[in-house]
Design a binder for these strands. Structure first.
Lengths: 206, 206
DNA sequence: GCCGGGCGATGACAAAAGTCATGCGCCGGA
DNA sequence: TCCGGCGCATGACTTTTGTCATCGCCCGGC
């Protein structure tokens, strides 16, 4: 039996996944929780109790700490632990972040159900699995064109702030802020910061 | 047995929900599909074959026609049919749209799993169920402040288009477009269209 | 029958946003 | 050591936005 922990903030989905996985005879969903914090607490408790969990299946977007950060913390506690991310939004940037953090499975929620169990087994036995389409996207997307400051400023621009607000929040002058926005827009091939922010977000760069 | 049809574009979620619902002994998930179009086609086929489906459980956000539109079409085919919406994003505007369309169940995906089956039974027996929190939000949110054109124009502004593009797509002059944007911004209490679009979206008004 | 409000448009103006050239300091690689 | 790139900043300039006053048309309610 593979002891599995499940984290997803959508209770309905989480319960349904747990029910489905429990029908597999080599998978045991020991618990499911609704946040990264709870997952970490539970993971620690199981380790301390001498009943470690083998694989954590984590939703990418959750309130509080997100899926990748959660996985990162788990891997700090238990290097080589089996962690995998499940997500609705398959953005290449997240995949890259996840793989860098040491996550061994990355699946969009559009994956056929049978794949999930299969990937849990793969991850449990030390293997890796990344959704092929996402992998292709990530490869074609390549690295971020944006410099660190350009990305910062774009991120602050994403909620519709004025240059003045962005400048204040980034501790920059307004002129500098506009320069960064301008160069980010040029790199992304768009003509205003909102499009730039949207595009950068698509690429997973901010 | 209550014959149920399930539509959600996330295969993993859809299969998991189907598996879970099939464990209930009075619910029979006759099929699950990944789009509103497929759901409609299947619904029609079942009606023609004399084996009508009792309840359609539909995800709100899908590629192609969305959950509410799908439900609306179903209710056109089979007035009084049991339709319910399940969603990740509980925005009050959607709830209102859904109820107006005749949908009898509206649940966020954060609902406990047991509720889903219970609501299917409620809807099947002619009742209604709306998530209490969402209902409260919808009541406090109130009606849209925006006129039809203001909402149109804001929606077109949401992807970062210039006034010129918005004007073209809305078949308006640039001046008129700016006037609508301006009045929408005033009504929403913000100082640019991107903030306005974000705020309107939060309220479910666009 | 009149009034208000939505819809559509103009024109003029002020305020943001975006562009460009240019400057300085710092760091890291050739 | 020198060059290039990044980070940060100014200033001057153009374009795009946002605001406002004003106009006309049509519709629905009083």
């Amino acid at each position: 039996m593979i002891p599995v922990l499940l984290a997803d903030d959508e209770t309905l989905i989480r319960s349904a996944l747990a029910t489905m996985l429990d029908l597999e005879d080599d998978i045991d969903v020991v618990a499911h929780v609704e946040s990264g914090e709870e997952l970490l607490a539970l993971w620690r408790r199981r380790v301390d109790a001498g009943e470690p969990v083998a694989v954590a299946v984590i939703d990418l977007q959750m309130a509080g700490i997100d899926g990748v950060d959660t996985a990162e913390q788990i891997l700090l506690l238990t290097p080589g632990a089996g962690t995998m991310i499940v997500t609705s939004h398959g953005r290449p940037g997240y995949l890259k972040r996840a793989l860098t953090a040491g996550v061994r499975g990355f699946l969009p929620k559009t994956t056929p159900a049978a794949t999930l169990a299969a990937v849990i087994r793969t991850v449990h036995s030390g293997g890796r699995y990344v959704d092929p389409e996402l992998a292709a996207d990530a490869i074609s997307a390549g690295d971020s064109l944006l410099s660190a400051r350009e990305a910062d400023v774009l991120e602050l621009a994403a909620d519709g702030s004025s240059v003045e607000e962005i400048a204040q929040r980034a501790h920059l002058s307004m002129g500098t802020t506009r320069n960064y926005l301008s160069s980010a827009m040029a790199k992304l091939g768009v003509s205003n910061r909102y499009e730039a922010a949207l595009k950068a977000r698509e690429h997973g760069w901010i």
